Simulated scan of single mutants.
Amino acid sequence: MNTSAEPHRSPWLIDPKIIARRILLALALATTLIVLGACSTARLAYNQAPNLLYWWLDGYMDFTSAQSPQARQDIDAFLAWHRSNELPTYARQLQQWQALATQDITPTQACTQFEAVRAAVQRASERGLEPLTRLAQQLSPEQQAHLQRHQAKSNESFEKDFVRGSPEQRLSQRLDKAVSRNEMLYGRLSPAQRELLQSSLQQSPWDAQKTQQERLRRQSDLLQTLQTVQALKNGNGNGNGNGAVNAAALNATRSYLARVLQSPTPGYSAYSQTQVQHGCTQFAALHNTTTPEQRTNAVRVLKGYEDDLQALVAQR
């Protein structure tokens, strides 16, 4: 929802890949593919989604040769559901955004669109729970160690991007990213619009240290959940290669997802909601300064995404 470099993005420029990483390595990553660059790139990327998703998950899990066939089967099933059930919804959402792009909007309207995107991610993550639980049952100690190394690498990248350097350097980096994302939608921003973004970023409630602590909590929670799922597999006789997922293991994964969506850390949910509200206000303020030409460009970009989704739906 936020137009800054923080976790909550503008509803029109939201990066679902970041959200997907919050959801048990969710197959919800597929939602990334509706906003990958140029329209033709988005269509090509979605058609390559089985391989993209497989290699993305493999980067975290380091699949064995025995695990790969089931992983690919689960990915194919998820994407078949996603194409039939979710892409038409996204296309309708893009039609609404095209109408909104031609007029001034309020922070409440912006937040409504953000919540629609968040709901789509939740639907996709729920759909991925069973295959992800099945995968978790099969992970070896070596694969769990591989996951921990991947987490450490991710933490290093976060530190580099958002924690290190002077406040001025961090603000400049965030501003550059915010400008770049908004120019994907509107075209070139004016000096006054850049100043508006900078001022909003300076007033943002986002706290890199607090966000990093929550990331670490989720990573630890994920590892503990994997241990729980492994214990439930061993205690119930599942995970013997037949693809079975027992209810207790599935509930453990679902509970983890719930803790990702609403942190148990005292005060964090309120902090997160404050970020969302700030992002809604920021996006509406910037949008309401756009020129007729910038709004025309936004409609053209959004229409391109809609056309791509309609074409993808027709291919099923």
Rank of each mutant, 00 (worst) to 15 (best):
T265S: 04
V313R: 10
A116D: 02
Q138A: 13
A244W: 09
N238G: 10
E183Y: 01
A30L: 02
L197I: 12
P16H: 14
L25I: 05
L196T: 06
A49Q: 00
D62A: 08
S157C: 08
F162V: 03
L309Q: 12
N238D: 15
Q273I: 15
R259S: 11
Q282T: 13
Q315D: 10
D221P: 01
C39F: 14
V179L: 00
N85Q: 09
R194T: 14
A119D: 01
S204I: 00
I75F: 05
T89Y: 03
A178F: 00
L309R: 07
I18Y: 15
Q151P: 09
N242H: 11
W56G: 15
N234H: 13
V163I: 12
G279K: 03
P205T: 01
Q227I: 08
N297Q: 09
R174Q: 06
L100Q: 04
E130Q: 00
C111E: 03
A270N: 03
G239D: 06
H146L: 06
Q273R: 11
V163D: 00
N182M: 10
I75S: 03
I19W: 13
N51Y: 11
Y305G: 07
Q96V: 06
R43C: 12
D161G: 05
L257T: 05
L175N: 10
A285N: 06
E86N: 12
V313L: 04
A252F: 07
V313K: 11
S140C: 03
G267C: 02
A284D: 13
A120R: 11
Q93T: 14
L135E: 02
R188K: 11
Q212K: 07
P16M: 08
N51S: 09
T89G: 13
L302E: 07
T31N: 15
P264W: 06
R218N: 07
A152E: 03
S84C: 07
A99D: 09
L232M: 06
T253E: 08
Y54K: 09
Q198T: 12
R218M: 00
R188F: 13
L189I: 05
R254A: 15
D15G: 10
N2P: 09
S220V: 10
L302M: 07
E6F: 13
S140P: 12
S172V: 00
Q144P: 02
L79Q: 02
A71E: 01
Y305E: 13
L223T: 02
Q212R: 10
Q310F: 09
K303A: 15
A192R: 02
S220W: 08
G239Q: 05
E195S: 15
V245C: 03
E156F: 04
W81L: 06
R194I: 13
V35F: 12
K303W: 12
V313F: 12
K177F: 07
A248S: 14
S190N: 05
Q95E: 04
Q310C: 11
Q193D: 10
T253W: 08
L44R: 15
R217D: 02
H287R: 03
H8Y: 15
S68I: 08
A116I: 00
E214Q: 10
L87A: 12
R72L: 15
E159W: 13
Q230S: 11
F114R: 05
M1Y: 07
Q67D: 04
S172D: 12
